[in-house]
Design a binder for these strands. Sequence first.
DNA 1: GATGATTACGGACGCCGTAAGCATA
DNA 2: TATGCTTACGGCGTCCGTAATCATC
Lengths: 282, 282
Amino acid sequence: MGVDPRFMRTFVTVARLESFSAAARELGYTQSGVSQHVAALEADLGMTLLRRRPVAPTEAGARLLEHASAILLRLDAARAEVVRTASGPPGRAHVGATPLSAGAAARALAAARRTLPAVETIVRVGERDAIAVAVATGELDAGIVDGIAAPGDPLRLPDTGLPVAEFVEEPLAIALPPGHPLVKRRSGLRLEDLVDARWIEAPGVTTSLATLAMHARAEGFRPALRYDGLDVGGLLALVEVGEGLALLPARVVEHGVALASPALVHRTELLAPEGTALRLAD
Amino acid sequence: MGVDPRFMRTFVTVARLESFSAAARELGYTQSGVSQHVAALEADLGMTLLRRRPVAPTEAGARLLEHASAILLRLDAARAEVVRTASGPPGRAHVGATPLSAGAAARALAAARRTLPAVETIVRVGERDAIAVAVATGELDAGIVDGIAAPGDPLRLPDTGLPVAEFVEEPLAIALPPGHPLVKRRSGLRLEDLVDARWIEAPGVTTSLATLAMHARAEGFRPALRYDGLDVGGLLALVEVGEGLALLPARVVEHGVALASPALVHRTELLAPEGTALRLAD
DNA sequence: GATGATTACGGACGCCGTAAGCATA
DNA sequence: TATGCTTACGGCGTCCGTAATCATC
């Protein structure tokens, strides 16, 4: 009846590794134990969740998987937040940042240095959701992430219950190669006008084209090229040689055209438990 | 180490009822069992979660509470969604609707009647989050809810993993008493211009003033009057006699002024598991 | 036949009720 | 003193490992 969350943990591991025995190794159980975990889940729900040999989720198992990882994440977040209340003054400041917010992270740390004692400090640059998860689970003490959103709207992050401590919104611009006819055009461009343009998919740096399409409420936005780097310079270089366009905060775009005003903004959020010493304000 | 989710369930119940024995009665345990549940949680997390006599959450307990209800909801939603995959063709159509979307619900049902067999049908009108939760946990088969949002943005609902099957967006208007100087003004009004107006807080019908303030990115919006009804007519009547203003879909507003265009829209969403026969389209 | 999942079984642990103890209003 | 939470203890169910069985590539 109660369904131990560890069973779900083994279930998602088995599904990910597509193997009972591999999951057993990873989790420190025996092959038999893993089998029993899955069997218990299946008995509790009254249906088979995995097809065996090859191991693959059934229809029901696939549905459970979507929920299971979210639940496990939130469980970890809950534990982390509770134990955080017990810890005294911070002896460390491990901060995560997305590439476009690394500058903001640096300034925030510098400002905090004035009041903070000399604690061990680490800055880690990574993908947005990964940073949010790391902060929620207590692996990091604060995170600064960015993305595009409607004005006033929080970023769409994995559901961890983590509060947005602060945020800053900036105008967006479409980065273009220098000399492009649209550069420095008087009036701003609407995103919908550029569905058929050659876009660069750079999920590590800026919003993926899929979410961009959702905000523009338009189909299309097919990637001409994919950039897997975690830095803005590389992406801008690709734009400059004409490989494609990218939507970025106007601040970092040298050659480009502003986005028609209030539809979308670039948003930088500070994710941290209450009482953080960091400030985004400039 | 594993923490049975039932422990969290008892924990939130104890916190809600502020009593171990009352929680025991409600959950069908003995007083001793409840005590042991809480003790197990406290032991697992290594800190006390509740102060006794009077029963009140500690700092750590309060943090846990925020997560616990979300986790329990998602657990119920996961179970409901998995068992739904097993159920064959629907033998019933229990549909929930918020007051402002009851009309849309009626039309959707009428349209579905053409293809659907004569199944038992119930329409329940209720508060927005309650309907979302009921659909997620399988209590209802579909829900139609409404609220205000930025164009293209989904409504902010409790995190259940439930997909938005369909949605419709409409312009908003500020309902005014007839003869009000602003009625039928040429240009639309911005929300920020009306922070100091007399607003009616009607959480059962339209968005609460708190979320309204968040979208307008402005403080203020203090309620002049609170309306606890679940119907639009009563709210409009209050507006008409000059008790205050309300933000509503333009469709239902007879005397009023349109909202300056693209900032906010009224959004109606169909919440249902995949494969629903309902359609919002008109 | 080898790899890998399931079933059988036993020890240990954990859940929960009964009943006694203890603290606070 | 009474109400209400905690602790002691015992039965039963559950978890998980070892080992044997079964199935699939």
